[in-house]
Design a protein around this nucleic acid. Structure first.
Lengths: 263, 263
DNA sequence: CTGAAAGCGCTTACAG
DNA sequence: CTGAAAGCGCTTACAG
């Protein structure tokens, strides 16, 4: 075909946002162009890495977008989004009902389910102040000073952040970690520094989606209602799929403070 | 419609093994009847349970079979099969190219990739006998006695099996566990019984698909070539998909003994 | 309520 | 090499 024709077609595709219909292609071509990867239930976790994650990685966002826009699915549940993730936008542009777990920022404009992080943190702090007043912590006054160290969600990162905090602010007597994993790291750092938990320093975690994180002492934590979150995501998605779309929907769920040994 | 007609149709469906074509249905119905569940890469493990596994469970084999037979996929990688799993048979009947990781029994007749478990165990035992001769183990003679305790693949089950073995055969001085997780359980049991590892008892694990199992002391293990296994599965599946099917294909991969501290 | 026709959006032979 | 037609296997209005 003539190069000019070719270019015209390509441009039309671009302008119209044409995406080929995968169902039609499957039907005419007598093939699905897809392969199933099946993990049967009880031990699917076993096969987590590195092979599986590699396969999944190899698919990539682009491949998934083609799949989703090609009409292969009616909606999308996105289980993990980062602040700079553009996938939700692309799905929204394609008018695909989409629900996120968590949100990218305070003014997320794609439907999502999240927990009340602020409320959860507030409860944790209230608890720390209350229990703290029984020990030596009242010396610092009820409000105390707040110190912040940043970490990602890994245990190692939590350990490092805690070590750093202890060096700069050895008077610290309570810690609210961003996740249980981070908290586990903090516990290690505290032990290494010879601090007792909870006698010298109280520690509170924030619910991970727990691959059975067992700490010593057992962690007090802000618990997220996982089941409810799951149900809410499904419900929201079904709503998006059957009704004409609201701009977006949001469900924020309450957390619960589970007091165990570390505070 | 007349009840007799209805029944005749249902019977024809049964006899012919009719399955409605999902691509055609999607195309005509303008909907996919499917929803995507997307876990972006780095922290997809976090969301493992319980919500995700519940969703996955809720799908179930039946639902998946419909999906697969409906022509939604051209082939299937089955990551975990149990001896009594019938899914591979149903996929084979539906003439869907299928590759299993592991096999259900010694005469598996569905294509699969597995490791040389016998060879791996042999290497482990050879190693145990060799290192054993430096310590007190040579008193038992080179071949020694072999004791077997059964467990599933959980840590707790490994702990119980080891405890049981120690009670019945306190002279035990070397252990080959069926998995790293089982080995971790065995290590706990040994510690609880006051045995030193590897001085009193040597322990060897068998590669899990490791969710970072860190043991103290670090585990000697039979390692499975995960990457190769993954590649082999994909290669086999592609072969099944493009060529006229051989009865089945098989790839058995060699293991490697990784000696660390526990032996 | 039932049955035949049109159409979903592609791919694949098949003429020109 | 290019273009028009047939067909993939369903669902969905639309007559009877």
């Amino acid at each position: 075909m003539k190069e000019s024709t070719r270019r015209a077609v390509l441009q039309a595709i671009e302008e119209l946002g044409y995406v080929s219909n995968l169902a039609a292609r499957s039907l005419a071509g007598q093939r699905a162009d897809a392969v199933a990867l099946v993990l049967t239930e009880p031990d699917w976790r076993q096969f987590a890495e590195p092979f599986f994650s590699e396969i999944v990685r190899s698919l990539g966002d682009a491949r998934f977008l083609e799949y989703a826009r090609g009409g292969r699915v009616d909606g999308v549940l996105l289980m993990s989004v980062h602040a700079d993730d553009r996938l939700p936008d692309m799905l929204a542009e394609a008018r695909l009902p989409t629900v996120l777990l968590g949100r990218r920022s305070g003014d997320e404009y794609v439907s999502h389910v999240d927990v009340d992080n602020v409320g959860g943190a507030r409860n944790a702090v209230t608890h720390l102040l209350k229990t703290g007043s029984h020990g030596h912590r009242h010396h610092h006054g009820a409000a105390g000073h707040v110190r912040v160290a940043e970490s990602d969600f890994s245990e190692e990162s939590g350990r490092r952040a805690m070590t750093e905090l202890l060096e700069r602010h050895p008077e610290i007597d309570a810690v609210l970690a961003a996740s249980d994993t981070t908290a586990a790291g903090a516990l290690h750092a505290l032990r290494a520094a010879g601090r007792r938990v909870p006698e010298d320093v109280a520690v509170i975690g924030f619910d991970d989606f727990p691959l059975a994180q067992r700490t010593e002492p057992r962690l007090t934590k802000v618990r997220q209602p996982l089941e409810q979150m799951g149900r809410a995501m499904v419900r929201l998605l079904l709503e998006e799929m059957e009704e004409q779309p609201a701009a977006w929907r949001q469900v924020i769920l309450r957390t619960e403070l589970v007091v165990r040994e570390s505070s």
